[in-house]
């Protein structure tokens, strides 16, 4: 098993003819993902690489191909609209890779997606890969191998680093999810931890967080109260200077929360194994799998 995407994922690519969209679509096909449709308004009726039909909108793509998942590579100013279109057209899972989506756009998208009962991953994320089954987004397929560790991360390349080190040590993954580092995203750590807990396949979970916000602290509470599977965590930004503050109001609403030290403390209190360096994941996960 796997979470969010699997062998039955039928993918529609929004922005399939763009630079990033076309490059990563080819990679996804090569990986064995069922890419069934593309969407680029104005290019409906054409074919991508001679095999994948392109539609003017997601509604047509879903109606004609049975697509159930969408991945979005459209430019930032159109990304919010693209997410809502995919959800409205009936895609149950939407992965938005686009970086630079205005946060006020996301304040409209988030409740829309929730009310429709869809799963949004991202924006500004590397996507999801279930090794050996399907890949949606930009996580390089060759650094992953199938196995029994679930991976969830707020970062892109740091995820690759950890997955690569696990793979080199022969530790495979069930699903790797990059949830993205934006202030408002569709899926958080708890959503992924809860999915890994329910999925019978993963025997341990690796999570990579970073400074800012309180998502990791809430995730730690969740692990303590609701998870039976072992979790190993890492926080990036242990040496980062205090960030550019958002003014008075920001400091108040988030309290003093958000430092690496505080997050690591929360991990320890919840019984989460703490990786000080990315390479520490290997030994810690190995120990948990025993």
């Amino acid at each position: 098993m796997s979470i969010f995407i699997n062998k039955d994922t039928k993918l529609v690519v929004q922005g399939i003819t763009g630079r990033d969209g076309s490059f990563h679509t080819k990679q996804a096909i090569e990986y064995g993902t069922q890419v069934v449709a593309g969407v680029t308004p104005g290019k409906g009726g054409q074919m991508f690489e001679g095999t994948i039909p392109i539609f003017n909108n997601v509604y047509d793509a879903v109606a004609k191909t049975g697509a159930n998942t969408s991945v979005i590579y459209v430019p930032p100013m159109g990304a919010a609209d693209a997410i809502m279109e995919a959800v409205d057209a009936g895609c149950a899972t939407v992965v938005c890779i686009t970086e630079g989506v205005p946060v006020l756009d996301m304040t409209k998208v988030y409740p829309f997606v929730k009310e429709k009962g869809a799963r949004l991953i991202g924006p500004n994320c590397p996507g999801v890969i279930s090794p050996g089954e399907a890949k949606v987004g930009i996580i390089p397929g060759r650094i992953c191998i199938p196995g029994n560790v679930g991976v969830v991360s707020r970062s892109g390349t740091l995820t690759y680093e950890v997955v690569y080190q696990l793979t080199r040590a022969g530790i495979g993954q069930t699903t790797c999810v990059g949830i993205g580092g934006d202030p408002i995203n569709g899926t958080n750590f708890i959503d992924c931890l809860s999915a890994f807990e329910k999925d019978p396949k993963p025997k341990a979970v690796a999570m990579m967080g970073e400074i800012g916000g309180t998502d990791e602290q809430e995730a730690a509470d969740f692990v303590k109260n609701h998870m039976t599977k072992p979790v190993v965590g890492f926080i990036a930004g242990q040496t980062a200077p205090p960030g550019r503050r958002m003014g008075h109001a920001g400091a108040i609403i988030s309290g003093s929360a958000g430092t690496a030290a505080e997050k690591i403390e929360a991990f320890k209190a919840a019984g989460i194994g703490v990786a000080v360096r990315p390479m520490d994941f290997v030994e810690l996960i190995k120990a948990k799998l025993k």
């Binding site: 390349t157 970073e210 990036a236 040496t239």
Partner: peptide
């Protein structure tokens, strides 16, 4: 390349 890896690299330099 990438903010998370950049922070992790700084952390490792310090480590």
């Amino acid at each position: 390349n990438g903010a998370g890896l950049a922070m992790a690299t700084m952390d490792l330099v310090k480590y």
